[in-house]
Design a binder for these strands. Sequence first.
DNA 1: TCGTCGATCTACT
DNA 2: GTAGATCGACGAG
Length: 200
Amino acid sequence: MKLPEAYYQSNDVVALSRNLIGKYLFTSINGELTGGYIVETEAYAGIVDRASHSFGGRMTPRTQTMYMQGGVAYVYLCYGIHEMFNIVTSVEGQPHAILIRAVQPTYGLDIIMKRRNMETLKPNITKGPGSVAKALGISRKINAFSLQGDTVWVEDRGLTFTDDEVTAGPRIGVDYAGDDALLPYRFYVKGNIYVSKPNK
DNA sequence: TCGTCGATCTACT
DNA sequence: GTAGATCGACGAG
């Protein structure tokens, strides 16, 4: 059921981002299993994408994870507070990545609520990339972990959404990227309550 | 070595 | 609606 290594080797990040909608993301951190299905993603298309950390072929200690072979996790800190979870795709040397922006939780709800310090299952529990990472217990320790391992992985459980149910639009929080900020690289399930801001 | 600012979220006015 | 949190990466000096 785990998506095979080959799934992540595709050179078309945008198509993969669309395809990941409805796939199940699981984490097993300290023996605590949590997961849910993906309802919002964003594609970051390598060295030609101004919004990407690897724009222009930038190679630093932080970004080198993006240059690894597809099928590993890329986790980094933003605004000093939030961890962001990405999936690296394509072949080695090609820094493509997909940001997981929102997940509909289905497994380990009690653990997720405990991690988020919430009594009830509010929609914003996994809304937005920072929240997803916290809810699933993802931290930078997981950076560069293979998705074939037993800590983080993605499964296909046969859940699919039609093109009528999925919308493409510009990415969030990338105004600095100029014209590239307008690219329709964000995919989300229309009207899903776990999707951040514009979700219609 | 230092200063700036970010693929954000929450709480409070 | 808006401010504050909070730290590491990066480019300039």
